[in-house]
């Protein structure tokens, strides 16, 4: 339980840093760290395959997408950076306070419940469920990947007028 609580605190802290840090690049790194911590948590919640996906896709692939887009778009002079830092401090100072207050209030509530479920009729195995029982989702995923390919073709194809 203690380990879980440490992981959860780390998760929230990483998310907070992601939102608050001034440099966009650090924000992307923070997001990857949040993903990595989340994947540890998912692994501890008896879901190893989803944890692997979270780690490789979210902390890996999405991090790469963000890094590429940030290096393409970001050109900040030091003076602009200083003013932006001040702006962000004025905009973001309430966030940690809100988070801490919410955390304190919510941990005070004593939540008690039991989880009763109707008897399981399907096997509890991710491979069987994903490949044998959810064909419609698989079809949807294939179509979405196709859509992504079309989107990349349409959005990134060379521009005629410079």
């Amino acid at each position: 339980m203690v380990i879980n609580i440490i992981i959860l605190i780390a998760l929230v802290t990483a998310a907070l840093w992601t939102a608050m840090t001034t440099r966009l690049l650090r924000s992307a790194v923070g997001l990857a760290i949040t993903s990595a911590i989340l994947s540890i948590l998912i692994f501890r919640l008896a879901s190893p395959i989803a944890a692997v996906f979270e780690l490789s896709v979210c902390a890996g692939l999405i991090f790469a997408i963000f890094i590429i887009s940030i290096t393409v778009t970001q050109r900040v002079t030091p003076e602009a950076f200083e003013t932006r830092k001040k702006e962000r401090m004025t905009k973001f100072w309430p966030l940690p306070i809100i988070v801490i207050i919410a955390a304190v209030v919510l941990t005070q509530i004593h939540f008690q419940t039991t989880f009763n479920l109707p008897a399981q009729t399907t096997p509890n195995d991710v491979k069987i469920i994903l490949w044998n029982l959810r064909h419609l989702d698989l079809l949807g995923q294939i179509v979405i990947l196709l859509t992504g390919a079309f989107g990349v073709v349409i959005l990134f194809k060379e521009w005629k007028n410079g």
Binding site: R134, L136, G140, I144, T147
Partner: peptide
């Protein structure tokens, strides 16, 4: 209800 989410995203 979950396939619903998938196809709404498509």
């Amino acid at each position: 209800i979950f396939s619903l989410y998938v196809f709404l995203e498509v």
